[in-house]
Amino acid sequence: MTERKNRLAIIASKGTLDMAYPPLILATTAVAMEMEAGIFFTFYGLNIIRKDRKNKLFVAPIGNPAMPMPMPNILGMLPGMTSMGTMIMKGMMKKANAPSINELLEICRESGVRMIGCQMTMDAFGLKKEALIDGIEVGGAATFLAYAAEASVSLFI
């Protein structure tokens, strides 16, 4: 009997720098653990795989009391505060020797993580497949569910 691989199915729905990490870290690690992994990028999660946005993911101090330097919203709304918060987080990640989003995307592609862009949100955002990085397939809810139905771990991030 051939043993089926365990499978990890993730929905990536957020497009901020902090929320881009967990799907990519988990998917790459799953493959390293000899599991299959797939990520369905929907709504703002599409930013993670947009050629023009993947290097420009931000984390905003406004309305975010969990920031390392908590900041009153009245200051968080000032111009430049989002860039500053993003810079601080990128600095922290670098100091911790964490890989960049780009590196993780590259590993996803190399290691065969299945990456699906949500057709409906792409249409709603006016995004063509060409706007996304290479190696992305496009599909809808049924595509994800058919994949996730056979998964032992499913996460919505």
């Binding site: 870290i25 690690t29 493959v31 390293a32 653990m33 911790a96 020797n97 964490a98 590993i107």
Partner: peptide, 14 residues
């Protein structure tokens, strides 16, 4: 040495 999650495990698998 010097790498953090998830890189040590990814390198280990390779």
């Amino acid at each position: 040495k010097g790498l953090s999650c998830p890189m040590p495990i990814l390198k280990l698998k390779k």
